[in-house]
């Protein structure tokens, strides 16, 4: 890639940051060039974020209808899935799935709650709450 072709699309996912890219100058010599982003990258990143948002919104609704425990929402709100939550708590997936049931979740021991709260970076009180709005928020232009 030539230096004058390094994209400078000022993409929103960079949030005014820049990335360093490798590109060639007029004589073909490589050097690092700052890039404010490529639209193609932005679209791929936004697709992933919108997917996370969609999952969190769906979870939010299921928790509101009391079909699932708040844990289920907090997992998605922290951009995790069952596999990641299982890895970061060290608990089996089937156990976590049980804890997604509201009645089971209410009876969880404080030790287990602390384990979840730690993995999700929140307090055990916060873990029981469902925020009014889904926290993965993507502001559309």
């Amino acid at each position: 890639m030539e230096q004058n072709k390094v994209p400078q699309d000022n993409i929103r996912t960079y949030n005014n940051n820049k990335k360093a890219m490798y590109a060639t100058d007029g004589t073909g010599k490589y050097a690092l060039v700052s890039s404010s982003g490529w639209k193609v990258e932005e679209e791929a990143t936004m697709q992933a974020i919108l997917e996370l948002k969609r999952l969190a919104e769906k979870a939010h609704e299921e928790v509101r209808k009391e079909e699932k425990s708040p844990l289920y929402y907090h997992m998605y709100a922290n951009r995790m899935d069952l596999q990641l939550l299982s890895e970061s708590t060290g608990l089996f997936k089937w156990r976590i799935k049980r804890h997604f049931r509201p009645s089971v979740f209410l009876k969880l021991s404080s030790r287990l709650l602390v384990r979840y709260a730690h993995a999700l970076g929140m307090t055990t009180e916060e873990l029981h709450e469902l925020p009014a709005e889904n926290k993965i928020d993507v502001h559309n232009e």
Partner: peptide, 20 residues
């Protein structure tokens, strides 16, 4: 989208480290 992210978004210097 996942392929493109691995190639461009994750700091690769462009084109999945091929330019580096």
């Amino acid at each position: 989208g996942h392929i493109v992210r691995m190639q461009e978004e994750i700091g690769t210097g462009g084109a999945g480290f091929r330019f580096i």
